[in-house]
Design a binder for these strands. Structure first.
Lengths: 210, 210
DNA sequence: GGAATTTGCGAGCTATGACTCACATTGTCT
DNA sequence: AGACAATGTGAGTCATAGCTCGCAAATTCC
């Protein structure tokens, strides 16, 4: 199917109309992905949905991969923004309350466009440019790692890197499952979920303060 | 690319040669998947690698999806076997030691064929028959849920379903990241990883016993 | 107003890969 | 040995989807 070995961007040129075209393409990509799934999401279908021709699509994105990658980037940016805000709001609280706030923010982030998020997780191959799907985790790690440094005195785990890795991976995975595959046990009970995860974290970071 | 709307199996007929053919096809599928990735893994390539003709492939598997699904099933079976064994061996230990044993078993399970496991996680779309990739989680939940029931008195979390969900999801995600994306923090330090995860679990299930 | 440039169009070219089918080989049973 | 079934073969068919290219419309500039 693919003939050329893809390369870098193409026209980043963007005046008035073209910006709208790019937006329309990204929005259409999101819609087609969630409605049809990754492999049914052909560039022709996406262009049609955007009300744009295939030719225009390839004027702004060198190939399908780059198009989807751009959407991934936009989505990750939105999610990270929520986390950054939460980190600020939580700065003055005690550790348990802070953790609670961060877990809540993670849940909110996963609700931004959970259908799209699910497609990224379940169907989009993490290869080439699309490997950046996992950048979300890496960037989250960095943000939280810096935060943990500031809170060093309240955390009784020896190695901050390990502790951050464990917390970030855990909260991400639990939240993902909670939002995407709503477990019967906690169905819809968002606050109970947040409580439980917070207990898990605090019990790990501050053992003995049960 | 696909023309027909796939259906059920085909020939399950299996005498002497044919069993070997099926085995060869599954092995070849695993090798091609790990070496080339999911979308480079064409049925022609797989058949060639197996030393078999495409025609034979389609005698035993109605389509590519079914072939990969069969491989997924085999892999999940192997991993679950390790967990089942560990659950038996751990029956008489105290909860903390038991948790440690289960975490270790999870790590071992992820080492069975981690390259293949990575492909399943990162590249194989969870659709149709391939949705069974996630059966591993579901079956693990059931096994652990039953085990938790027996240990009810040692667990101070109110809702066993939630607790099981949290523990299983957490251990799976952490182990997966540890094996697949070896974090710098814990690089290669398997025992330290197991210690840390065990602390996380015990702190949650038995708060106050730090 | 006209020329140059940017943006948009979409039929069609091409590669690829899933799958078929008419035939060949091997194995089994009496 | 002969016959019938089981198993294996691989060139070829067909549908699809990524991508191009020659042209048209809209914008901008002088």
């Amino acid at each position: 199917m693919a003939r050329a070995i893809p390369t870098n961007p193409r026209k980043s040129a963007s005046q008035k109309r073209s910006l709208a075209t790019v937006e329309a393409l990204l929005d259409a990509t999101a819609r087609v992905l969630t409605r049809e799934g990754y492999d049914r999401a052909s560039t022709n279908r996406i262009a049609a949905t955007a009300g744009v021709s295939v030719g225009s699509l390839y004027q702004y994105f060198p190939n399908k991969e780059a198009l989807v990658a751009a959407l991934v980037e936009r989505h990750n940016r939105e999610m990270l923004e929520l986390l950054r805000d939460a980190l600020k709001e939580v700065a003055s609280l005690d550790l348990a309350a802070a953790m609670r706030g961060l877990v809540r923010a993670t849940v909110d982030a996963h609700l931004v466009d959970s259908a799209l998020h699910r497609i990224f997780a379940e169907q989009v191959p993490r290869m080439g440019q699309l490997a950046k799907i996992e950048d979300l985790q890496r960037e989250t790690f960095l943000l939280v790692r810096a935060y943990a440094e500031e809170r060093r005195s309240e955390i009784s785990v020896r190695d901050l890197d390990s502790a951050t890795f464990i917390c970030v991976t855990t909260v991400e995975a639990l939240t993902h499952e909670f939002i995407i595959n709503k477990p019967d046990a906690l169905d819809g009970d968002r606050d109970r979920f947040i409580d439980e995860v917070t207990r898990l974290l605090v019990g790990y970071l501050q053992p003995g303060r049960a």
